[in-house]
Amino acid sequence: MVIIAMVTGFILILMGLYGALTNTNILRMIVSFSVANTGVNIVLVSVGYMHGRTAPILDNAVPLAEASTRIIDPVPQALVLTAIVIGLGITTLMLAYAYKLYETKGTLDISKFSELKW
C-alpha cells in the first residue's frame, strides 16, 4: 500500500519534471510543476502511513490510552498541509508572473525570455 502510493508519487514527480523541463510553454511548465508537486505531497503522506492504523484524531474510535498504537504518524500530515499551501502560493505567483510576462512580450515561450544571459 505504502509502496504503491510512493511509486505513484515518484512517477508523478518524474512525469511532472519531464513536462516542466521539455515544454517550452510557460503555462504548461506551471501545470507540470503542479503535477510534480502533487507527487511530492503523495510521497510525503505515504511516509507517515502505517498499515492497519487510523487517522490521528482522538474520538470514540481511538481511545486516549491506545492512541500510540492505533494512530498513524500525524507529523507528515501536518507537514503536507504546509507543503500544499506553500506549493499553491508559488503556483499562484508563477501564474501571475506568466500573465505579466505574456503582457511584456506577447508570448509564453520560455526560451524567448533570455535577454539576461552569459
Binding site: 519534471l17 510534480a36 511530492v40 511516509v47 507529523v75 506549493g87 508559488i90 508563477m94
Partner: peptide, 27 residues
C-alpha cells in the same frame, strides 16, 4: 520579471528536493 520567473522555476525544483529530503530524514 524574467529573472524572477527563472528563480521560481529553480525554487520549484529546490523545494521538491528539500521536501523529499526532509520527509525521508524524518523517517
Amino acid at each position: 520579471l524574467a529573472a524572477g520567473f527563472k528563480y521560481l522555476i529553480i525554487s520549484q525544483l529546490v523545494s521538491m528536493f528539500l521536501l523529499l529530503g526532509i520527509i525521508f530524514a524524518y523517517h
